[in-house]
Design a protein around this nucleic acid. Structure first.
Lengths: 191, 191
DNA sequence: GATTTACGCTACCTTAGGTATCGATACCTC
DNA sequence: GAGGTATCGATACCTAAGGTAGCGTAAATC
């Protein structure tokens, strides 16, 4: 649906539009914030007509979700044991949220999804679901614990971003890693 | 500013308007979600003119913040030791977010605040600040740890609400309490 | 060269936040 | 009781922004 590179276009799909729009979306959101990053402005920044964007993505929210999916890429699940895996995942998402535009965009779509059930389905299904599955397979925890893990980590990062406008600092990310690991990995007891 | 009961009105301030508007705000948000709960609809539900609302609150966000402040009330910091205090605070805010309308309204303003610096100031200063101070005094933790505590707890609750549309279930609240306490209160080590 | 397809452009619709104005009504003071 | 004052309700309005429709056009494919 939203992937324009499929179907072998006979006309002139102007290769590279998607990448340009994604870049324009992030930079515009970074500059103006999510709400002020209107589709008109994003289109202008991408050197593209507004209608072209709406031909490829049904809503602004869907565009941003796809943009985030592209910006995030796959979770780098590095490490041999569970603790290392979880720590790397937390530090990865924290770093991503800290990238200019990404954090604002993420918080923004999330915001919109709160009162928009359709967007919520897109956000949860298209963005969260792949990472949920990857984490579940890698960590071997039950579904409910994976969802809880995501709630705590992503929730804390977004809350900091939303309340202060700035991403979480390094020391707090470390605290987050310690807190989550001590819970999932059996306590901070040195013995 | 937003408190109409001060100043001894010479005219006819029609006592009870604030309470009616608050109730209408929560019920409308509960029914339709934050975005669809327009000021027009809230005004209609409260039996009040839209202009009356804008005479008392500068923006929709400010109205909802005041409404939440009223709905939350003071934190009941019960318990003798720190662990009990933290647990009661977590369960209190979790229960509040679970009340019909409150969670949606909270997630909604939070959302708006992401791309609205003025609203962010109102939200952080008027809603979060009192609780931050109360927690700091009661727990005796440094400011950064209190903010981190709030980020984790409120962030997780809002993330669950935003992603699923439903408040966090009891078992997850319990997990949240355990996780936070084991971190702030020295590990789950039985020794 | 004809068809197909996506693009740019312009114009437009709708919703919703927020403002301005005016007349009515209640209260308080004199 | 008369007059001033402040708030309320109603209507009308402005603006920004999401989203749509229609038209002409440029480019690949056949």
């Amino acid at each position: 649906m939203t992937s324009p590179t499929s179907g072998r276009p006979p006309g002139r799909p102007r290769a590279g539009v998607t990448a340009e729009v994604f870049a324009a979306t992030l930079s515009t959101v970074h500059e103006l914030g999510y709400a002020r990053a209107t589709v008109d402005r994003i289109a202008a920044a991408a050197g593209v007509a507004k209608t072209t964007i709406y031909r490829r993505w049904p809503t602004k929210g869907a565009l941003v979700v796809d943009c985030l999916l592209d910006a995030f890429g796959p979770v780098p699940l590095e490490g041999t044991d569970r603790a290392e895996l979880m720590a790397s995942a937390i530090r990865w998402i924290a770093a991503k949220v800290g990238e200019p535009g990404v954090g604002d965009a993420f918080a923004g779509v999330f915001s919109d999804a709160v009162s928009d059930p359709e967007l919520r389905v897109i956000l949860a299904g298209r963005l969260q679901e792949p990472y949920r599955l990857a984490l579940r397979d890698a960590l071997g925890e039950p579904d409910s614990r994976i969802l809880f893990f995501i709630d705590v980590v992503v929730g804390a990062l977004l809350h900091r971003m939303g309340m202060t406008g700035e991403p979480m600092v390094e020391s707090d990310v470390t605290a987050l890693v310690e807190m989550v690991l001590s819970y999932y990995d059996g306590g901070t007891c040195p013995a």
